[in-house]
């Protein structure tokens, strides 16, 4: 069960910012699940420069997701 957060343009594309209680055992499974629901979002989640934070730490590649994990998809950042 994961809480999923979307930021920036990903949020607008999906039409939601946060969803709780998504059943996925890994980042890869979570992406596949979201892509099945919304192909455009699925493609964007794997798009250039999109980073994934698992429990507020950046992770690369596929990673298992523990219970009550927080997974955030972070498109290219633009501060200042």
């Amino acid at each position: 069960m994961a809480r999923v957060l979307l930021f920036g343009p990903l949020r607008d594309l999906a039409g939601w910012r946060e969803r709780d209680g998504i059943e996925a055992a890994s980042i890869g499974a979570l992406k596949a699940l979201l892509a099945k629901e919304d192909a455009r979002l699925g493609a964007a989640l794997s798009g250039p420069g999109v980073q994934v934070a698992l429990d507020q730490a950046i992770v690369r590649g596929d990673q298992p997701i523990g219970p009550r994990a927080e997974v955030a998809f972070l498109p290219p950042m633009s501060g200042g």
Binding site: F7, G8, P9, L74, P75, P76, M77, S78, G79, G80
Partner: peptide, 14 residues
């Protein structure tokens, strides 16, 4: 600091 804040700090600007 400014170079890093521009493209490495988690902000999204609309």
């Amino acid at each position: 600091l400014m170079d890093y804040l521009k493209s490495r700090a988690p902000f999204w600007k609309k």
